[in-house]
Each structure stands twice: as C-alpha cells, then as structure tokens.
C-alpha cells in the first residue's frame, strides 16, 4: 500500500506533461478493480473491431449451413463454426465481430456529434446568459420532454432508417442533456479569475467559450461521455432490433437478436451470443464511467 502511495506521489510532479498525466490516470485506474474490468471489456471490443479485417473469419453475409451449434464442423470437415451459425447459415462469430465494428463506429460518431452540438449549446447558454440562455434552455426542455424511444421512432419513421439519420436522432435525444451539464459547469467556471483575466485582455466571447471554458470543464464530461457511449450502443442495437436501424444485410447486433428469436428453439446461441455482446460492451462503458467518477471524487 505504501509503495502505491509513494509512486502516486512521485508521479504528481510529472503531471504537467501530457504523457505523464496519462500515465498518472492509468495508474489511478489500476487501483479500482471495477474500472479495470470496464477498461478491459471496452478495449476487448475495440480490438475486435479493429482486427475484424485481418482475423481469419468466414464471410459474415454468406449463407453456409443453417442451425450449426457452437464448435460444430462444416460439411467439408475442416471449417469450424466457433459460435455456430444462424437460421440462414451465416457464421455467428464473423457477424458478431463485424457487428462490433459497426456498432462502435456509429456509436462513437453519433456521441461525438451530439457532444459537439450539446457543448456549443451549453457553453453559449451558460456564458452568454440572458436571452441566449432562455431560448436554448427552452429548446432543451422541449426535447427532453419526449420519451427517448418515441423521439427516435418519430425521427426515424419520418426520415427513414440510415446511419446519418441515427446520428441525427441520437443528437436530438442526447444534446439537451449534454447542454444542461455543460451549462451548469460553465455557470460555475465563468466567475473564475482566469476568465476575468481573459476578458480584461480583450478576448472575444467565442475564444473565451471554446479555449478558456470548455477545456476546463472536461473532467465531469469525460465521465458523462463514457455513460453516453454505452447508452448510444444500446440505442443503436435497440433500433436494429426494432428494424429501424442500420440497413441489412451487414451484421447488426440488435437485428441479429430480432432475426434469431423466432427460431430460438433450434439455434439458441444465435440469439444469446449477440445479446451477451451488447451487454458486455455497455457494462464496460458503465463500469469505466463509474471508476472514473470514483477517481475524480478522490482527488
């Protein structure tokens, strides 16, 4: 225990450098078993998504032999279906790994766009105040009054199911929440001395908002981003499950479940495996967020 504390203490002076700060953060993460588990789950799926093109996988969209169990051999006696095949005879392992790439890419993109919009709204409402605040907060309140799923269904059924529309729908649903958090943080930060210093120097409002305020609000936002990434993964899979998600035939975890449930009696693995994948990825993000929050409270 003493060694841990002494290394943590000796690491602090190095914190000003970016690398040092990162190593320090990783060191802190290692102290929380929950955060470690979360990091492991997230990194596992990120690795799978990145390695999908180089792994020796079968083609995810080719029908081979239907209803093979996990570990069964194909008719040629060589190919192994490690996680079995689905009702159309497609390899579940290949669909799972390619599906991880799809869900991670779109979840990250959608969350990032929602964050840009939400942060701009929040920093403008918090820093400019007055009329801006009233208008932006009202828009946020209106959007937050929708049950999220109803908002998604209305947007997707009005505009059609596509990746871009999912990004749009997630932005509509998430940006108001992000705006509220950022606004609260900015209201607190804008009374600090360095903001007055910047104002006295004659910096413009946008410079102060984007360069002085936002970077200093990052701590709680990183935790929130982790939670939101997990929630966006749920959203994308849920829309896929409802048939409102990314278009087929490319694998989508939610759609894999929806397709496999009717024939569950013959290929239980085809519905259980993607459900486990979604849950583990979301759990990873949630545990990571929980660990990060614990660490930030300790400082």
């Amino acid at each position: 225990m003493a060694t841990v504390e002494s290394t943590a203490a000796s690491a602090t002076p190095a914190a000003p450098s970016r690398l040092g700060a990162l190593l320090h953060a990783i060191g802190l993460l290692r102290e929380s078993r929950i955060a470690m588990l979360g990091t492991f789950l997230v990194l596992f799926w990120v690795a799978m998504a990145l390695l999908a093109p180089v792994l020796p996988l079968l083609d995810p969209n080719t029908p081979l032999e239907p209803f093979k169990g996990p570990g069964d051999l194909a008719r040629d006696g060589e190919t192994v279906f490690w996680l079995g095949t689905d009702h159309k005879g497609r390899d579940v392992l290949a669909r799972l790994i390619w599906g991880s790439q799809r869900v991670l890419v779109w979840a990250t993109l959608a969350t990032a766009v929602a964050y840009v919009v939400g942060m701009l709204m929040g920093v403008a409402a918090g820093y400019l105040g007055g009329w801006w605040d009233e208008a932006i907060s009202f828009v946020a309140n209106v959007l937050l009054s929708f049950p999220v799923m109803v908002l998604y269904i209305v947007i997707i059924s009005a505009l059609g199911a596509s990746g871009a529309n999912i990004v749009l729908a997630v932005t509509f649903a998430s940006a108001p929440g992000i705006m509220r958090i950022v606004r609260g943080l900015v209201l607190d930060l804008k009374t600090r001395d360095y903001i007055f210093a910047a104002q006295t120097r004659g910096e413009g409002a946008w410079w102060i908002m984007l360069v002085e305020l936002l970077p200093n609000a990052r701590g709680p936002l990183i935790v929130d981003a982790c939670l939101r990434l997990g929630y966006t993964v749920i959203t994308i899979a849920m829309l896929g499950f409802l048939g409102l998600g990314l278009p087929p035939p490319d694998p989508d975890w939610g759609a894999m479940i929806a397709e496999a449930v009717p024939t569950g009696a013959f290929a239980l693995h085809a519905m259980v495996v993607p459900a486990m994948a979604v849950s583990s990825l979301v759990l990873g993000f949630n545990l990571l967020a929980d660990g990060l929050r614990e660490i930030s409270l300790r400082d």
Partner: peptide, 15 residues
C-alpha cells in the same frame, strides 16, 4: 442490470 438493455435481458430470460 442497468447495463443489460431490455431486448438483451428479454433474450436471456426467454432462452
């Protein structure tokens, strides 16, 4: 339990 979305927990329970 909050990390397991409804359609996934429904899948497990049905299985």
């Amino acid at each position: 339990t909050t990390s397991i979305p409804e359609f996934a927990s429904a899948t497990f329970l049905v299985a």
